[in-house]
């Protein structure tokens, strides 16, 4: 499998950090948890969890597609492998994709920034919270199969935050 190539750059004039040409910024689990809490709390007013998931998908898909293009990564298996490694480089956790096909598949997260951060901050919860990873998995499947944005619906079916030993995400082709 391919090694993940990470190119960090610091623009000293603007004091901005770039990873593979994309502006990135460090934040902590408090910030990610509170953004997620905001998305959940605002549900009666706005579909915050969908916005969180789609914001993640849009951003990550762009980065993945550019990486695959720039480094000539054409095989689905290689793309999935790179996507899993990039997930870890972001500090989001340990992602595996044990099954995938063009219509969907399954992703497993054995360590999770979102879930472990949430538990550190507030403890366990009865409802899944990892909408950012739902967006990441949707982005990864779409980028791996050269599908357009919003091609996959991703649902978290098992969650570390709910007490499971791993989180599981099911990706299916979106039915419009």
């Amino acid at each position: 499998m391919e090694n993940l190539i990470l190119e960090h750059a610091f623009d000293a004039k603007r004091n901005r950090h770039y990873l593979n040409g994309h502006l990135v910024v460090m934040h902590c689990h408090h910030y990610a948890s509170l953004f997620t809490q905001l998305a959940l709390d605002a549900r009666e007013l706005v579909d915050g969890t969908r916005i969180l998931q789609e914001s993640a998908e849009d951003s990550f898909r762009c980065m993945l597609v550019e990486y695959f293009t720039r480094h000539q990564i054409h095989g689905v298996a290689e793309r999935i492998d790179i996507g899993c490694k990039l997930y870890g480089a972001f500090g989001l956790g340990l992602l595996e994709v044990p099954s995938n096909e063009s219509e969907g598949g399954e992703a497993v997260v054995r360590h999770s920034h979102l879930d472990e951060g949430w538990i550190r901050k507030w403890g366990t919860r009865q409802e899944a919270v990892n909408f950012i990873t739902c967006g990441y998995v949707a982005a990864l499947f779409a980028a791996a199969y050269d599908r357009p944005p919003k091609s996959f619906t991703v649902t978290e079916t098992q969650s570390i935050v709910r007490g499971a030993d791993r989180s599981v995400f099911q990706a299916r082709t979106r039915q419009e």
Partner: peptide, 15 residues
């Protein structure tokens, strides 16, 4: 003392 992430800025801005 925290778990750090390093995500694209446009993700936070877009949300």
């Amino acid at each position: 003392n925290v778990l750090v992430n390093q995500l694209p800025a446009d993700f936070w801005n877009e949300f």
